[in-house]
Design a protein around this nucleic acid. Structure first.
Length: 219
DNA sequence: ATAACGATTAGCT
DNA sequence: GCTAATCGTTATA
């Protein structure tokens, strides 16, 4: 592998802010494609209103409560997958969302997986595109990235010096959106643009209607 | 059982 | 810049 040794589990067994900052420049390899990370976001489990783990373990967030160095892939907007790396000790529920990066190997495969993309810089710009070019989906949740011979790995890559690291609020996050827990490589074209949380559309259906079948359905 | 919503993207103006 | 697409997860009844 040309991207150096896979990162040890101890790398992920730290608070998410430290892991997120140190993930910049590292290389994620999966499904025949490698991406060098340029943009990530930290999520801090039960202490973080924006985290999927905020309200305690559920079927979806269970893997976040497990040991570090595992993959958490979730489905959103009815069509996209986004990939996280679980951090902190077993029992804590922190994770880092992979938001952007540069495709450094397997570009042809990546193009096949994202036919709509026009430029190389755009291939893995945005969390769903990044997970998409790597071929990740819910089936990969729970994968152990630190096991010898793992099919999905995070390699040492080339760490980013402090002077090149920028930090600011997380993208598209309503609750606790102002927390500056997003890290990116300053000026890099593979970093997605900032977007505040989407405004909710006004209600179109009147509230308080009685659902059909609610009175006398099958037991 | 059911409504509301989402850590987004692509396509169009 | 604006918004349709599309469905699993969650909270609530």
């Amino acid at each position: 592998m040309p991207w150096g040794r896979p990162l040890p589990r101890a790398f992920f067994d730290r608070e998410p802010l430290a892991v997120a900052r140190d993930l910049l420049g590292r290389v994620v390899t999966a499904g025949g494609v490698s991406v060098r990370l340029t943009e990530v976001e930290a999520y801090a489990g039960t202490a973080d209103p924006a985290s999927h783990a905020y309200r305690g373990p559920t079927g979806r967030s269970a893997v976040m409560f497990g040991p570090p160095g595992h993959l958490y892939v979730y489905f959103v907007y009815g069509m996209h997958w986004c990939a996280n790396l679980v951090c902190e000790r077993d029992g804590a529920a922190a994770a880092v969302l992979l938001r952007g990066g540069e495709v450094v190997a397997g570009q042809e495969l990546a193009r096949q997986r994202r036919p709509a993309v026009r430029s190389a810089a755009e291939l893995a710009r945005g969390p769903a595109k990044l997970a998409g070019v790597l071929g990740l989906s819910g089936a990969d949740t729970g994968a152990d990235l630190c096991r010898p011979g793992a099919g999905i790995v995070v390699s040492a890559g080339i760490p980013v010096p402090e002077a090149a690291v920028s930090r600011g609020p997380r993208v598209g996050v309503a609750a606790a959106g102002e927390w500056p827990w997003r890290f990116w490589v300053a000026g890099d074209r593979t970093v997605s643009g900032y977007r505040p949380a989407a405004r909710r559309a006004p209600r179109t259906t009147a509230p308080g209607r009685i659902a059909p079948g609610s009175a006398g359905g099958p037991g």
